[in-house]
Design a protein around this nucleic acid. Structure first.
Lengths: 212, 212
DNA sequence: GTCTATAAGAAGATAGAC
DNA sequence: GTCTATCTTCTTATAGAC
């Protein structure tokens, strides 16, 4: 017996399996076996496979939101951090970018949630919306606030902060999904990530400006 | 009866279904029904479901490569186009970016191939590698050649062309996958796409340069 | 709450007539 | 090459003992 109640362990193992193989390819017996019980016992905790799947999505989303809160990426206003960035902005961006990248790549729940949404996004419209919200809209909204502050603080050049944010975030997302697919390319992705952030900063830093 | 041999029609309908629902969720009867035959008849054309799936992937990849050839994005060297870009580079980039985007978003085979690889990438290592090759490595390699020429032609600033290419391409990929998930956001994505390319050009254009 | 036994149905695949 | 009939296996889910 491992830690947690059986019901918790079921969600945990189901999360791993659904994220790896998708809803259809996972059978209830495999989940039960991973937990160490027989399939019929599982029906004492969840009425059916679909309800278990819904519980998995709810649990993953809940954990993901907690994580985002820890990263201050949910409703974060960001005013407090701006002064920190006035100096050494480039190094700060590199550190933040790599930390963000490494955490989301290697955290089990974040990784499984991302894979599950990737696999099932075209099946269930609700998951498509959830995917966009959690992996596009929210991160972009958070970063945009930060960059807007850095523009106001004259650290970054004046331009559309929404696009600036897209330029910062989308390469990170591309590299993250690359590593999800092919973990063996992580070292290369990390090097590219750092180069990306440094070149991003060079392009967007204030002072050595263009007009336009 | 629609056009094409039965065998061709089977791959065609199977492509649509596999791309929409994934391998496991599609049953052979559904494919047969879409073609207008009974399931057992299908086994006269393909030995089993897996062989049909392999044929679908092969066919999609083949068509995709033809498409890329048409876009001169496979082994394209690009020397011929560089002069065109010396003038009106920004507008050219916008037109090319939007054309590329619209084609790959709406072309049935390109769209289905992308969705299929997205759904099945974690199941079959070969598909993961194929996904990266077709939707990351190849487009980046193609664009990098073009941008390298534009740097040499003093149209774009001197910097790492690999990262410059990543900055151009990754927002396009993000917006493309966004529209795959939520087609209703296409108008917004198109506006963002154009803004992205214009801001990309502003950042990278030569002349109004920084030192670094 | 867990088990064994089992129902009920779905899905892949084959046999053989036409 | 397409059909109907059928086989076999897998899978979800339930019944009921412990």
């Amino acid at each position: 017996m491992k830690k947690g109640t059986t019901k918790e362990r079921i969600v945990e193992e189901a999360s791993r399996l659904f994220a790896k193989k998708g809803y259809e390819a996972v059978n209830v017996e495999a989940i039960a076996q991973a937990v160490g019980i027989k399939a019929p016992s599982l029906y004492k905790h969840y009425r059916n496979k679909q309800e278990l799947f819904d519980a998995v999505v709810a649990e993953m989303n809940s954990r993901y939101e907690e994580t985002m809160s820890a990263f201050q990426m949910d409703g974060y206003e960001g005013e407090a951090d701006a002064p920190l960035f006035a100096e050494k902005t480039e190094e700060q961006l590199v550190v933040i970018g790599i930390q963000f990248f490494m955490f989301f790549l290697h955290d089990d729940y974040a990784s499984n949630f991302r894979k599950l949404l990737t696999i099932e996004q075209f099946q269930i419209p609700r998951l498509a919306a959830l995917f966009t919200q959690q992996y596009t809209d929210k991160p972009l909204a958070y970063q945009e606030k930060l960059f807007t502050l850095l523009i106001e603080a004259d650290v970054l050049r004046e331009c559309d902060p929404k696009i600036m944010t897209l330029h910062f975030y989308s390469p990170i997302q591309l590299l993250l999904t690359l590593c999800d697919r092919q973990p063996e390319r992580e070292p290369e992705a990390l090097r590219t990530l750092e180069q990306h952030i440094r070149q991003f900063y060079t392009l967007y830093q204030k002072g050595t400006d263009t007009h336009e």
